[in-house]
């Protein structure tokens, strides 16, 4: 209770900033800078004025948000699987690494927006294009971190495993993957925040639904409180994803910290 209270007190600047913002925007009266109260009202009508049996969620909330989150997570999972598999292979095989590394370094240096048009030409507009675009754009941090992590496995652990007669598969799942895990998680986290950016971009350019599309739609109809409201929702999504990821990471990697302490 005490901690909760202290947390609430820590947030005192938020109402102060909101109040200043309200006064300022009311003062300048610019169409593109609506006061926060108006943004809140527009967010409420956009998402929370549906029928009661659907928890008051509107059609827009029930279609656009899950669609976007689904694309983001599919792209992220796809990138995670591909990145970990390829990354571990590269990390464990110095020869393969020497062959592929320049290609990887080059591919990850390409700013993903440059490839959006290419993916649109390849798959035409739709979820397939968006998911593959997101996955291609964010796979590199996972891949590179997984390969670093797999390369830096303690030799002694591997030798011990070999002495005890662990098979290749067992070594992979019991030694290599667990010891690469902290690095892989660091990569997955960077990828997750990048996935949100690319999700919005792909929906702004080539989409007929999703949060990014709603953002564009609001801008085209000069509904600036709608634009601001959508930006706020995207910020909240980013915050939720990051916090959820950190919580999951703490749970999954808690053994790692305690294992490190004993050695």
């Amino acid at each position: 209770m005490n901690g909760l209270l202290r947390g609430a007190v820590r947030l005192w600047p938020v109402p102060v900033v909101l109040l200043l913002w309200e006064l300022l925007t009311r003062g300048i009266e610019m169409l593109s800078f609506p006061p926060p109260s108006q943004i809140a009202t527009s967010m409420y009508t956009m998402w929370l004025t549906g029928p009661a049996e659907r928890l008051w969620l509107t059609d827009a909330a029930l279609t656009n948000i899950p669609v976007s989150v689904g694309r983001l997570l599919s792209g992220w999972v796809l990138a995670g699987v591909v990145g970990i598999v390829l990354g571990v292979a590269l990390g464990r095989s110095p020869l393969l690494f020497r062959f592929i590394d320049p290609l990887v370094q080059f591919a990850r240096a390409i700013p993903p927006p440059m490839l959006l048009a290419f993916f649109m030409a390849l798959f035409s507009i739709g979820p397939r294009m968006q998911i593959s675009f997101i996955a291609f754009g964010i796979v590199w941090p996972v891949l590179i971190n997984a390969s670093e992590g797999a390369r830096q496995v303690d030799r002694q652990h591997l030798d011990t495993a070999r002495v005890f007669g662990l098979s290749g598969g067992e070594r992979l799942f019991r030694i290599i993957l667990p010891s690469a895990m902290p690095k892989i998680f660091a990569g997955l986290r960077v990828s997750l925040s990048l996935a949100l950016i690319l999700m919005v971009l792909s929906e702004l350019v080539g989409s007929t639904d999703g949060i990014g599309f709603q953002l564009l739609d609001a801008q085209r109809s000069y509904d600036f409180s709608g634009v601001w409201g959508t930006i706020v929702v995207l910020g909240v999504l980013g915050y939720v994803f990051n916090s959820a990821f950190l919580a999951a990471e703490r749970r999954v990697l808690s053994w790692h910290r305690s294992a490190k302490q004993t050695t």
């Binding site: 702004l204 990014g212 634009v227 995207l234 910020g235 980013g238």
Partner: peptide
Amino acid sequence: LRPILEFLRPIPSIALIPL
């Protein structure tokens, strides 16, 4: 300023382009 920054940071910068 931390709560303000913590809120601004996760906003994807691409989302600001239409504005």
